[in-house]
């Protein structure tokens, strides 16, 4: 449990730091691409948080494996 709390603290601090350094100046200047940046950044933050909390995140490699196995008749 303590490991998970440390993970969460580290992840949140890292993302706040990156957000302050990169996203905030973009938001202030209303630069082109702030929404794409925000969407990707928040998406990345959520995935990192879930991984940090040891919650299973869907793995695209497993999906690719399943599709290939079905197509090639392996399993």
């Amino acid at each position: 449990m303590i490991n998970i709390i440390i993970n969460i603290i580290v992840i949140i601090s890292a993302y706040i730091l990156i957000g302050v350094i990169e996203w905030y100046p973009m938001l202030k200047k209303k630069e082109n691409g702030i929404f794409v940046y925000g969407f990707l950044f928040l998406g990345s933050f959520v995935i990192s948080l879930l991984l940090g909390m040891k919650i299973k995140v869907p793995n695209p490699a497993k999906g690719i494996e399943a599709i290939l196995s079905m197509l090639l008749g392996w399993r």
């Binding site: 630069e31 082109n32 691409g33 990345s44």
Partner: peptide, 10 residues
């Protein structure tokens, strides 16, 4: 260059 960081994190 604006979106390198979030793509890198993903």
């Amino acid at each position: 260059r604006k979106i390198v960081t979030p793509i890198g994190l993903l």
